[in-house]
Design a protein around this nucleic acid. Structure first.
Lengths: 337, 337
DNA sequence: CTGAAAGCGCTTACAG
DNA sequence: CTGAAAGCGCTTACAG
């Protein structure tokens, strides 16, 4: 292994000076810098990040805490992760995907080891126990999602109000007057405080009346099967519905196949518009889904940047809400006349 | 931060002795051990893994190198990753998901930094440039998949021969005599040396004749759309086909919707059997797919264990091939009479 | 602008 | 069985 000592020796300087040019932490004359850079190149030097971490008390590793037990890791999650990883890399950080339980104990374990400088929290619950853990241990963190009490917590999230408003406006504009929102199962303790369900539903209950639309909300767990079952209930209880807005992306796939199975043609008889979905997933159905596209790339990046700013002591990034945007497909059309 | 020095002081021993009980590297009397363990508990000591890494030249971090540019990170990939992460944790290692390009340059960067002890290689090509990089840098690694020249490289992989044999036997047993295999696009330079395509196709060409089955092989890229298009070609060129075996899981979803769209009922008119798929993905279609289930959990674990054995200097794990197993669904049935 | 030296929190020969 | 001490490869006051 080539060390800074080797570089310093070859360049005829001290290792401190090598460190200064490597990190750009102190002014160094152009001549000295050139000698050092040449030596580094000739020797193929790569700074040992472990030694740097120990000496600087900064590992430059960020953990993305993903509650894989409660949430499937699908295309949307992958989008968040890869954009966050890219953002981290651009700022000389490593992003580690960390599958953790939701109770915070694994997180305690992780941060106690001193491996990570900070944590990006995915799939935040309204009263997330992981937040307490991170606060108590004094670990810097940023949330993708929001707890209900924010108190200056660094976060970015989907703009559910705007997303629901845009979705309603879109289908209303197509001529639909009989809508249904399929939200989550708020009786399931795991999801009763899950932001996307709670906030989408609240937004819908507020916005639908503004359009003079009767507020029909049904619930569904986050699986294909549950989505199919929800459609059976919908067709039975609200056969007049011409457009379905649906929060969970797995349930949305089930909604499509469920409606097909029930003999409802999409979009001729009924339109389907998921409120949060990744394009890769939308391409899996036939017809391809019109979706509100989850802003995973934006939020992954913003969440990571928010955290890195904290770590670097820069001005904090103000909380940002990003709406899902309409991504055209073939599952929406004017209602049957 | 509580350090070993604090623990040693409280227990009235040297830090060396604390290290010995922590790592179980030298015999320590029960009394001393008890004192130390009590001190650790009282102080809430957690060993700093960065310091350990620097002193021992072992970070206990493993990278899973996933070529995210060329391969979608879907449910199957997630299965590999989570089972590998679990296996690593059980042996006191961290597993890091590392999205890398296929050319090896990012990998060079990563291993040069000294952050990882070894690498688990995912989606290995038959002549994978990443293998050369790891060899040249002397980085321990294990492959999930296989290059064509193995020379004692540590690997685990899908048993394509067995998988294809089981799949053919199954549909043959249902009464099918007119099969088609949808493999990959071997003209695409990215996938012409991709093991799953090459090996499945080779196995099929060998096995089909043994059953007296005419060998029909078509190609498809790995997307839903490509799978749909492949079905259009199949129905046009080989309308007599009653069972489709298909390698790529995304193309398989497209095959289902494509056949539906073409008016072929599944499974009444034609059976569909993906040769490699995760159950979460099989549940996305209607009807739910009968699949050969990708042994992701097994291979993720075995690959990680193979690597850790190398790292620990234990007896190497012999290469293991694990077949995909039949996972019943509703897309296979006897052929129309 | 540059260098000598202490120190990050551990592990590991070496000695006893 | 236990301890004193060197060392892992860096960073960072401090001094000049």
């Amino acid at each position: 292994m080539v060390t800074m000592r080797d570089v310093a020796q070859r360049a005829g300087v001290s290792i401190a000076t090598v460190s200064f040019v490597l990190n750009d932490t102190k002014p160094v004359t152009a001549a000295t810098r050139a000698k050092i850079e040449q030596a580094m190149a000739e020797l193929g030097f790569r700074r040992n990040v472990v030694a740097r971490a120990l000496a600087s008390r900064r590992t430059h590793i960020i953990a993305m805490a993903y509650p894989a037990l409660d949430h499937k890791f699908g295309f949307s999650a992958a989008e968040f992760f890869t954009s966050a990883a890219d953002a981290a890399r651009k700022q000389d950080y490593h992003l580690v995907l960390w599958p953790v339980g939701n109770d915070g104990s694994e997180l305690t374990e992780l941060v106690g080891q001193g491996l990570v400088d900070g944590v990006v929290l995915m799939e935040v619950q309204l009263d997330d126990p992981r937040v307490s853990v991170l606060r108590e241990t004094g670990t810097p963190f940023a949330m993708i999602g929001r707890t209900s009490a924010l108190e200056g917590l660094s976060h970015v999230d989907i703009d559910f109000d705007q997303t629901v408003e845009d979705a309603v406006e879109y289908v209303y504009g197509l001529g639909h007057r009989r809508l249904a929102l399929i939200s989550g199962n708020l009786n399931d303790p795991l999801f009763s405080t899950y932001g996307p369900y709670v906030r989408s539903e609240a937004a819908y209950r507020r916005i639908a009346p503004q359009y003079g639309i009767e507020t029909v909300v049904m619930e569904s767990s986050g699986s294909t099967l549950a989505g199919q079952e929800a459609m059976a209930r919908l067709v039975r209880d609200h056969p007049e519905t011409t457009a379905v807005l649906i929060v969970n992306e797995f349930a949305a796939l089930g909604a499509v196949s469920g409606l097909n199975r029930l003999g409802r043609r999409i979009p001729e008889d009924i339109s389907v518009l998921p409120l949060l979905m990744a394009p890769e997933m939308a391409a899996l159905t036939n017809p391809e889904l019109t979706i509100m596209r989850t802003p995973g790339p934006e939020l992954g990046q913003l969440g990571t940047e928010a955290l890195i700013r904290q770590l670097e002591g820069a001005d904090p990034l103000p909380p940002q809400l990003v709406p899902a945007k309409l991504h055209p497909g073939a599952t929406t059309a004017p209602p049957p006349s």
